[in-house]
Design a protein around this nucleic acid. Structure first.
Length: 192
DNA sequence: AGGATGATATCC
DNA sequence: GATATCATCCTC
């Protein structure tokens, strides 16, 4: 049943953002720090797609902050919000199309010192700001490729997610985005 | 309901 | 250079 883990490459992210955001549910996020390896199942995401999406930072055009979203897929976009929380995003879509998926929730967070034996840390990790704090994700990872070399990557370990297991709802904190605020671009797993 | 706390965009 | 605005979370 358990398949060999497959590390996701840029091909996985080179698709419509809503598609990638849903496909990321059930995938396993890895984070390597000094002496500690974290892993957790992704359970909640949001899609931010294109310059017409008024909730997306890229709607203002290319700036030093947003240029990473205009680059190739499979890169990390991290920014500081409210002066204290780092948000973790994965760049999607081909070069020159700005878009990204925000990682909002994790489950089954585990840590390991040797990369083989894992111990449970938390069953559920709610909130995009809290999960980056847990996994020691900060702005030093901004604009890096999603890759074990950069100590942050995602792997497919065979969890099958049926479409009816995905709850779709409005994105959080984007009430200012007019019509785009009502898009059901937030995706959560029912269980886990 | 409101405060913490700093980068960013958008004005002067 | 000043200020308004946040893809949040915690405390009251």
């Amino acid at each position: 049943m358990a398949q060999k883990p497959t590390i996701l490459t840029s091909d996985f992210f080179n698709k419509d953002t809503k598609q990638v955001a849903q496909a990321l549910l059930g995938k396993v996020l890895y984070r390597q720090t000094d002496g500690l390896l974290y892993r957790a199942i992704i359970t909640e995401t949001e899609a931010y797609h294109g310059i017409s999406d008024l909730a997306c930072h890229c709607t203002k055009g290319i700036t030093p902050r947003t240029e990473i979203m205009y680059g190739p897929p499979g890169y990390i976009y991290i920014y500081l919000i409210y002066g204290m929380y780092y948000m973790l995003n994965f760049v999607t879509m081909p070069q020159d199309f700005p878009a990204a998926v925000l990682i909002r929730g994790l489950s089954n967070l585990q840590t390991s010192q040797d990369g083989k034996h894992f111990t449970d840390m938390a069953l559920k990790t709610d909130g995009p700001g809290k999960l980056t704090k847990h996994l020691q994700i900060k702005s030093d990872l901004n604009k890096l490729k999603i890759d074990p070399k950069n100590k942050l990557w995602v792997s497919d370990e065979g969890f099958r997610i049926a479409p009816d297991q995905i709850i779709k709802s409005k994105r959080i904190g984007v009430a200012y985005a007019q019509a785009w605020a009502d898009k059901l671009w937030r995706f959560q797993l029912k269980s886990l």
